[in-house]
């Protein structure tokens, strides 16, 4: 599982907003181009971004291994044809190029995940999206990070309890229903306690955020983001 790790790479020093801009620019241009020359250029950019965040390509591949299954199936599906000649290589290659660019998009997002702590992402969200929606989105994202391990443990407890009562020998609908009801009930009990705790701590629309500032290295990166986004139009 790929997560943030403290380090001192170029990517770690960048402002989260410039990193988000680069990702969006890269995705825009990768979605617009599948030509062989574009793919070589995109590979070079994605490789440089991985180096800048010190993520090895193997690590990134492993992090997205489930996506790889679908990306590998797609060209096979495209190549198969009903009726003679059964396999259409041309179609398969077009689809393989398309799925390769998706892999590159995933690589670039791996660099962001490795190099950006939650609080920086949250500050970026709250400073980019104005007003109350931005506030709620930023705080909500932080809460999702916080509650993820807690709820995972809750679900584990529910499944252990079901197994202990031979619940895992029941029908699939019954099992899914039990996990659904118990998972939701427990989660909402936590939510009510959380709401009370937030009110007790003066949960406000205008809290003080960590300072974010663009540094000198951010400007070339922002320029790169703009260039990538514009190259989608080429």
């Amino acid at each position: 599982m790929l997560t943030y790790a403290p380090d001192d790479t170029l990517a770690h020093r960048l402002d989260p907003r410039s990193k988000l801009a680069v990702q969006i620019g890269f995705a825009a241009t990768a979605l617009a181009h599948t030509g062989p020359r574009a793919l070589v250029a995109l590979t070079a950019v994605a490789g440089a971004i991985l180096v800048a965040a010190r993520v090895s390509p193997l690590e990134a591949l492993y992090a997205y291994r489930y996506a790889l299954v679908f990306l590998a199936i797609a060209p096979v599906l495209a190549a198969l044809t009903l009726g003679s000649p059964w396999i259409d290589l041309e179609d398969g290659i077009v689809s393989a190029r398309a799925s390769y660019r998706v892999l590159l998009i995933l690589f670039v997002s791996a660099a962001y995940v490795r190099s950006t702590p939650v609080r920086a992402s949250r500050a970026a969200i709250q400073r980019t999206i104005p007003g109350k929606p931005g506030q709620l989105l930023g705080i909500g994202v932080a809460l999702v990070f916080r509650f993820l391990p807690v709820l995972r443990a809750d679900l584990r407890t529910i499944r252990d309890a079901m197994a202990a009562r031979l619940g895992d020998e029941r029908g699939a609908v019954d099992r899914a229903g039990t996990i659904g009801v118990l998972g939701l009930t427990r989660a909402f009990e936590r939510a009510d306690r959380l709401a009370l705790a937030m009110q007790a701590r003066c949960f406000a629309w205008n809290p003080t955020l960590p300072a974010l500032a663009f540094s000198r290295v951010d400007y070339p990166v922002l320029a790169l983001a703009a260039f990538l986004a514009l190259s989608a139009l080429l």
Partner: peptide
């Protein structure tokens, strides 16, 4: 929307513990 945003900034919430902006543009 909170689920998507949290995943986009790096919470391992998408299927197979994946995270990042990539899955939002990828095949899923």
């Amino acid at each position: 929307l909170l689920y998507l945003a949290a995943g986009a900034v790096g919470a391992p919430v998408f299927a197979g513990w994946e995270a990042g902006l990539g899955p939002l543009f990828g095949q899923t």
